[in-house]
Design a protein around this nucleic acid. Structure first.
Lengths: 187, 187
DNA sequence: ACCTGAACACCGTTCAAGT
DNA sequence: ACCTGAACACCGTTCAAGT
């Protein structure tokens, strides 16, 4: 238990933060969900800022691994690009949660600096992956891959946000169709 | 002051909520910013939920008025559509704030029901306005106006969110360019 | 190493009272 | 009509101390 207590805290904190944000993440509920007292959390993480940074870092690491796995599983870059919305869809399908870093982007002003940094890295990871595949698929000119990658990332994050505010997973799917129809996402 | 105390509270609450969200809006700071004590706020608003709903309602009302003014000022529907990003740009330009209802969309799970309703109405107002102009401009087929309007609204909200997480107004402008290049926003 | 009780500060809220 | 100090119950955080 002691070995994976830290892991259990990270997993529970991630799930709570995806639903309530950094500000809404509370130590008493978090501690209860892993079976310890809130004061005990400070043994594993010196502060909420440290916990938040650790959660956000683990989040983009997991996402990067997930994206790489997808690329390995679907070698055709165009087919793989079409699967990108799956990543953001999963959070909505799991209790109307959202991307941790989208939530934190909203809370940006109130985030400790180390947390801000991890949030930025999450965006970098997504955009770099998209740009690489867009280039490989030849969907856009090499010089436009970065811009298109940025656009896709922002638009998908926005779609998740809007769908969450209706608690409507089908709306997310419709938005992805709308993006395809408009030419933003590849067919 | 007593005559417009309620208005002053609404304005201050809106500004604070655009920076910190509904959860981050606190009665003591809010009261201090309008020069009264937190207990006095309850004379004007029976609860935080009521204040939140009033702020969100006023917010979409103001946005609707702003969009209508823009349509009157720029009668050509295509030219007017091109100006839509201005609305979301303004919040970023004003202290890296964001759309109140985008922030509240993230906080959706923790919102009182009356506040949720106003958040939904904000999206409806934006999408209806966009769909009307898209139809008038003939940018897309009548049958696709609603879908395209949804897509533009979600994408612009997403762009604001991402730009906020970099405190980078130029990134917002670049994203609008990216959307235009991809065909989502009209040239 | 790992955890806890108790104290502290801050939250939304209420209320009796002041002008 | 409009505002206030004081108090309430609650909760995140800190600290000294327990095993």
């Amino acid at each position: 238990m002691s070995a994976n207590a830290k892991e259990a805290i990270l997993a529970a904190a991630r799930s709570m933060a995806q639903a309530h944000g950094y500000g809404g993440l509370n130590f008493r509920d978090l501690a209860a969900s892993v079976g310890i007292k809130s004061a005990s959390l400070y043994y594993h993480f010196p502060s909420k800022a440290d916990l938040g940074a650790a959660v956000a870092r683990r989040y983009w690491e997991d996402t990067a691994a997930q994206l790489d796995a997808m690329a390995a599983e679907t070698p055709d870059p165009l087919a793989c690009l079409r699967r990108y919305p799956e990543v953001f869809r999963k959070a909505l399908a799991s209790g109307n949660r959202m991307c941790l870093c989208s939530f934190m982007a909203a809370e940006y002003d109130d985030l400790p600096e180390p947390v801000k940094q991890e949030v930025r890295t999450f965006a970098d990871v997504n955009i770099a992956w998209l740009a690489r595949l867009l280039g490989a698929a030849g969907v856009v000119a090499e010089s436009e891959a970065e811009g298109r990658a940025r656009a896709i990332y922002a638009a998908v994050a926005g779609a998740q946000l809007i769908a969450r505010s209706r608690a409507d997973l089908a709306l997310y799917d419709r938005l992805m169709e709308d993006y395809r129809a408009a030419g933003l996402l590849p067919h």
